[in-house]
């Protein structure tokens, strides 16, 4: 289990717990459950890489306590 912090810099900042083998899509669902935005409108980014839904968190080497950028499309 790991906890990721997602921050759109507009006032929403959530910490989400997830498994390492969760896909980004799952993560997005979790985030949407916490923030109230629809999951398909969420874009997760780290610098310029947009994380794709079907790839797991572990494959992106997202570790515990990492900060992801939260955008909306």
């Amino acid at each position: 289990m790991l906890e990721i912090t997602c921050n759109d810099r507009l006032g929403k900042k959530v910490r989400v717990k997830c498994n390492i083998d969760d896909t980004i899509g799952d993560l997005k669902k979790l985030i949407s459950a916490q923030t109230g935005t629809r999951s398909d409108k969420i874009v997760l980014k780290k610098w310029y890489t947009i994380f794709k839904d079907h790839i797991t968190v572990g494959d992106y080497e997202i570790h515990d306590g990492m900060n992801l950028e939260l955008y909306y499309q």
Binding site: V14, R15, V16, N19, A33
Partner: peptide
């Protein structure tokens, strides 16, 4: 999970598990 620690909202493990169950994901 509002007003969690570290500035972001965070759910507890149990809560998350519950949520995950609803979403159809395996528990943490």
């Amino acid at each position: 999970g509002a007003a969690s620690s570290g500035g972001g909202e965070s759910l507890s493990v149990e809560e998350t598990n519950r949520l995950r169950a609803k979403l159809g994901l395996k528990p943490l």
